[in-house]
Design a protein around this nucleic acid. Structure first.
Length: 491
DNA sequence: TCGCACAGAGCAATTAATTC
DNA sequence: GAATTAATTGCTCTGTGCGA
């Protein structure tokens, strides 16, 4: 009887990048992944990247049969004799299965190519490659070289489907071969884990780094409920959490004041002890110095590992939507918006409409200035004719995030100063939860992708566009309300 | 998945204070 | 004034939190 082959594309589990419990759960309690329902941000760019990466690497034979490993293995064996370049070849060794991204014939053997849609060589890729190299070697393939192909984020797409230059290559043979002798132990350890009871491993950083584990909610449900005001809600609290845990303190309210060095931590602790929010009147003073009219601005963007629009780069955040609230001195509020779901390059229309919308004077409020400022500067670079008016907007940006962080805190923010955490405490009627289709930036990207797709019916496109417009408008209205709140206003 | 900004840590270089 | 020590400043690196 054929033994069960276990799928170890998840070699990060083997090498300790993610915990053994995940492997155990994936094998024994697969259905739990669906129950836990993580909200990880993922795009299905995988095959787009794969197709383009293969075309850049060279012409070769692609072995498909994703769902039929037996067929994939027999086809690999057959093609290995004839071909110089194979994509997705399948091999097993000691019942461990591996599918390398590419296998290229070189002098005296093969170059194993691993393609990653990432812009740098991460340590855990080396472990991943070590497992694959071990399987290939065990299956009789002479691995002479291991190459990592990854995204060159300086590549500028000049159109016409020409992606030469999209990938960087790094020879990682030495690092991988150094790890290969350890793989045998990793496999043995995991076999033991799989044969035993559910491993007792507590929830920790391994649940989200480097990859989100789908079982986190399940593991959390098995652990005692955390403190109502855990020390960990302090921003950048890693070191303090450890220090306090050693003293048996897990509740922020029990932390001795002397243990906290920075003023923000003190303010947060104090707010959780008193149960009351904190608002420093200086926020209002700082804001009241700014003139009128006032604009409140927010962008939505999309980014692809493989750029699709001429003049853009991999992972460049290309803005396709803006929302702007315009507030006059007398308190009148007007809303304007731009949204491009045509699927064509949105940059030009985005920029020209934006310039019109924000006028020539008055502060332009944003939340986390770095983001909008960087997008406008990129547009200025791409569109020389609009360079000056665009850069003039950058000079007028006022960031509400640092003002909020320095002068305001509410215990319900649980240590976070993101607009999504702040808004419910200053304008509960504007909760994002009551938006139907789009509730955060990640969902906005998903909605946009669906809206531009040819496969999406018109009715659904209209619904998604409305969802995007509602969401982005909510973001800028949130800023209006926040600025007013910080100035002591009342709605 | 990206990148930016910033806090904090660790270390090196510089400046100030102390001692002879 | 020189040598030593202490305090301060400045730099790089890493991790976190923000945005999408």
């Amino acid at each position: 009887m054929m033994k069960k082959v276990f799928w170890l594309s998840k070699s990060k589990i083997m090498s300790g990048q993610q915990c053994e419990k995940r492997l155990w759960l994936e094998t024994h309690r697969r259905e739990l992944a669906e129950v836990s329902g993580t909200t990880q941000m993922t795009f299905d760019y995988g095959h787009m990247f794969g197709d383009v990466a293969r075309s850049v690497i060279g012409e070769g034979a692609l072995i498909e049969h994703v769902d039929n490993i037996g067929l994939a293995i027999s086809e690999t064996t057959k093609l290995l004799r004839a071909e110089r370049l194979l994509f997705e070849p399948a091999f097993t060794h000691q019942n461990v299965l591996s599918r390398a991204d590419g296998l290229q014939r070189v002098w005296g053997g093969w170059n194993m190519i691993e393609a990653k849609a990432s812009t740098s060589v991460k340590d855990y890729y080396l472990d991943d490659c070590a497992v694959q190299a071990w399987v290939l070697t065990g299956a009789g393939v002479k691995v002479r070289k291991v190459t990592l192909a990854f995204v060159n984020n300086r590549f500028l797409y000049r159109g016409k489907s020409n992606y030469q230059g999209l990938l960087n290559y790094e020879d990682i043979t030495a690092q991988v071969f150094e790890r290969v002798p350890m793989v045998e132990q990793w496999v043995a350890r995991l076999r033991k884990v799989l044969g035993g009871k559910e491993p007792a491993i507590n929830v920790g950083t391994q649940c989200g780094t480097p990859y989100a584990c789908p079982f986190t909610a399940y593991c959390q449900s098995k652990e005692p409920a955390p403190a109502e005001h855990p020390v960990g809600i302090l921003p950048r609290s890693g070191e303090i959490v450890e220090r306090m845990a050693a003293l048996g303190i897990d509740d922020l309210r029990d932390v001795p004041p002397a243990a906290l060095k920075n003023a923000l931590h003190h303010r947060i602790r104090q707010a959780h002890i008193s149960g009351r929010s904190y608002l420093d009147p200086e926020a209002g003073q700082a804001l009241s110095k700014l003139g009128w009219p006032r604009y409140y601005l927010d962008f939505e963007t999309i980014a692809f590992p493989v750029p699709i629009w001429k003049g853009t780069r991999p992972y460049q955040q290309v803005p396709f939507q803006w929302s702007c609230h315009h507030e006059t001195k007398s308190g009148n509020l007007f809303h304007t918006a731009f949204l491009d779901t045509s699927g064509h390059a949105p940059m030009k229309d985005f920029a020209s409409s934006l310039i019109k919308a924000v006028g020539k004077r008055g502060p332009v409020f944003v939340y986390n200035q770095a983001f909008e400022a960087a997008r406008i500067k990129e547009l200025a670079q791409m569109l020389p004719a609009m360079r000056e008016p665009l850069l003039a907007i950058v000079d007028r940006l006022v960031d509400l995030l640092p003002i909020t962080r320095e002068h305001y805190y509410h215990p319900d923010m649980r240590g976070s100063f993101s607009i999504k955490a702040v808004l419910p405490t200053v304008a509960p009627d504007l909760d994002y939860e009551n938006l139907e289709h789009v509730q955060d930036g990640g969902m906005a990207q998903q909605a946009w992708l669906e809206a531009v797709s040819d496969a999406t019916p018109e009715e659904r496109k209209t619904e998604l566009s409305q969802g995007l417009l509602d969401y982005c408008e909510r973001d800028t209205l949130a800023m209006v309300r926040l600025a007013d709140f910080l100035q002591g206003g009342n709605w």
